[in-house]
Design a binder for these strands. Sequence first.
DNA 1: TTTGCACTTGATAATCATTCGCAATTATGG
DNA 2: CCATAATTGCGAATGATTATCAAGTGCAAA
Lengths: 120, 120
Amino acid sequence: MTTARRAILRALENSEDHPDALMLHDRAKEFDPTIAQATVYRTMRLLEQEGLVEKHDFGNGRARYEEAEKEQHDHLINLSTGEIIEFHDTDLEALKIEIAKRLGFDLKDHRLELYGVPKE
Amino acid sequence: MTTARRAILRALENSEDHPDALMLHDRAKEFDPTIAQATVYRTMRLLEQEGLVEKHDFGNGRARYEEAEKEQHDHLINLSTGEIIEFHDTDLEALKIEIAKRLGFDLKDHRLELYGVPKE
DNA sequence: TTTGCACTTGATAATCATTCGCAATTATGG
DNA sequence: CCATAATTGCGAATGATTATCAAGTGCAAA
């Protein structure tokens, strides 16, 4: 456990949005001003492998991260603002597993993103 | 409508898998040996904007394409082989729309990928 | 507390998919 | 056919991410 990693972890914990590597770098610099961008990438990869972080691609070319301990959820992206909304639906979870089973597979992972605009 | 575009379209029509830009380039060379990689990218971007092609990211760093006229479907990726299986589920479609509505959004687009391994 | 040493780091170069710039070529309307 | 606009091929540029490598750091054993 090093200074750099502590800084990145704190930056991540303080982030309610789903930051990308650049945002994390900026935020981590507050705790360790000399931290390098490469260290952020290395640490996020490490945390992802450890299962402590989830990496997402919301389609803007760079990966977004969030802590992984939370209960299972999916994302709705507000196309008007870019805001990311988390949601959970039990029926949906069950249906995903059911569909995979029907096709002859054990579901190992999945990814669902809804893209929408505010009603009316 | 140029030679290059005809070659790319034919390559795409002949592809049942979900080819990436490199695969399309190789296949299109069969019809137009001098075609450039950049032309494939340009053409795919064009076709996507026209709504004739769908672009997917199955998590291997490069985009995969498929014709867009087909009926709505999602994808299940076989983690053991990389094979991509298309499926459609009416309940799932309805549920996506319903969830977006519940959150106050009109669903404009969505992306669902299931990753699984063959049962037992 | 030192020391040893494996693990990290910062800086920078390398990679990989994709996009750009531009001169040369081709499609197309008249 | 001709003129103009659109498209191509090539190679360079881009942007996110990863690799390299010498220097620095955490930490367990002495």
